[in-house]
């Protein structure tokens, strides 16, 4: 299963929305999907997400992720179907274990559960593929008052993922070249074979963190009165989308209760 969580710059109208709007969108979809309990509305919600993915020109990535999710969704549905206790029993695979019987409500609940999971994951994937990490973090800092230091940690972590993966590869090769066998034996032996990879990785990461701290502070990190390059303000479209999203959530709440 390959799930892309990378920002894909396509310049679509969805990309042009403010990060905050898209974050509210993902959270609104999450809330609504929790409030919906029938498969049909959830299915409609799911298809409208695919429509938005098309609008954002990220369909290909989202669809490949959805394909990967189908298996997980299937198992999730199956579990719910067998373990849901309420409703009319349609079928009992093992008569002595009434807890494992399949009920009409169980089927509906299982399918809804799976669809809900798909909806939530897809909406967040949509958010991640259409929003640069930096914009997300800056809007967290500006509008949700997340301290900059934490937000910065997150950006830096993203920046270092490729470096980290390259290091894992090189260390693995360096130990293999000294005839180390990473595939050896049972689970415990397996764990032991990881040491030659994990220890240099930890050492290198610590060194790097130290050097990074030095490089950052010698460039003024930590001074009071920090400013922000390219802070984006939500526009009229953003306000409209946010109002629409909040209304949808309110409607879902009213319908439910």
């Amino acid at each position: 299963m390959s799930v892309s969580i990378e920002y894909i710059p396509t310049g679509s109208p969805v990309h042009r929305l403010h990060a905050l709007t898209k974050l509210i969108f993902a959270l609104a979809v999450l809330t609504i999907s929790m409030l919906l309990s029938q498969p049909l509305p959830l299915l409609l919600l799911f298809f409208s997400l695919l429509g938005i993915a098309a609008l954002a020109s990220v369909s290909q990535e989202i669809l490949s992720a959805v394909k990967g999710l189908l298996k997980v969704a299937f198992f999730l549905a199956l579990l719910q179907v067998f373990f849901y206790p309420e409703g009319t029993v349609l079928f009992a695979p093992i008569p002595s274990l009434p807890g494992l019987s399949v009920t009409d409500q169980g089927i509906i609940f299982g399918i809804s559960m799976a669809l809900r999971m798909m909806v939530i994951v897809t909406s967040f994937l949509l958010f991640l593929t259409t929003t640069p990490a930096r914009s997300t973090v800056l809007s967290l800092v500006e509008y949700l008052k997340v301290p900059y230091d934490y937000a910065f940690l997150f950006i830096t972590a993203l920046r270092f993922i490729p470096t980290f993966l390259e290091e894992v590869r090189l260390i693995g090769q360096a130990q293999e070249a000294r005839a180390h066998d990473f595939s050896g034996g049972g689970p415990l032996a397996r764990l032991k074979t990881i040491f030659p990879l994990a220890l240099p990785l930890v050492m290198i990461s610590l060194q790097r963190a130290e050097r990074m701290a030095m490089a950052m502070e010698t460039r003024g990190f930590g001074l009071p009165g920090r400013t922000y390059y390219r802070t984006e303000k939500p526009g009229a479209v953003d306000i409209m989308v946010i109002v629409a999203l909040l209304s949808a959530v309110a409607a879902a709440v009213l319908l439910r209760f």
Partner: peptide, 11 residues
């Protein structure tokens, strides 16, 4: 931009 932001340069 990182250093400029840190030292409070006008965006």
């Amino acid at each position: 931009a990182f250093g400029l932001e840190n030292t409070g340069v006008d965006p």
